[in-house]
Design a protein around this nucleic acid. Structure first.
Length: 111
DNA sequence: AATGTGACATACC
DNA sequence: TGGTATGCCACAT
């Protein structure tokens, strides 16, 4: 049996399951992974996602307010918003429009 | 082993 | 309304 993968891997896996045109929050992923209050780990994992191989749509992950807090980490403050817009997600004032409606809970993938 | 760090969340002032 | 403080926990050094 394989060694326990870093929790980053779990984050990547969950993030990569985010459906097209949907978004989720760091806290939701953290809670899903059992980290609950420690959404920081998720954001940190995203930070590490730019290194190494991965296909993590980190732009679909925003904070609890639907705010694009990590947009600066995409190589540019406009990249994240543009990526979201290209998926049909409207972004205004650095926030995801209708965030509550577009919100995707990782648990949905298990249903 | 200990310390520092982090793209959050919540509470308080 | 926004800054400060604390909690939270895995990873890097």
């Amino acid at each position: 049996m394989p060694l326990k993968e870093s929790f980053f891997n779990d984050v990547y896996e969950v993030a990569s399951k985010i459906p097209y045109g949907r978004v989720t929050s760091y806290g939701a992923i953290a809670e899903y992974l059992g980290l609950r209050g420690s959404a920081r780990m998720v954001g940190w994992a995203m930070n590490a996602s730019h290194t190494g191989k991965n296909n993590v749509p980190a732009h679909r992950v925003v904070n609890r307010n639907g705010l694009l807090t990590g947009k600066h980490h995409f190589g540019g403050p406009k990249v994240m918003e543009q990526l979201l817009r290209s998926e049909g997600i409207k972004v205004k004032d650095d926030k995801v429009v209708k965030f509550e409606k577009l919100f995707w809970d990782p648990r949905e993938s298990e249903q």
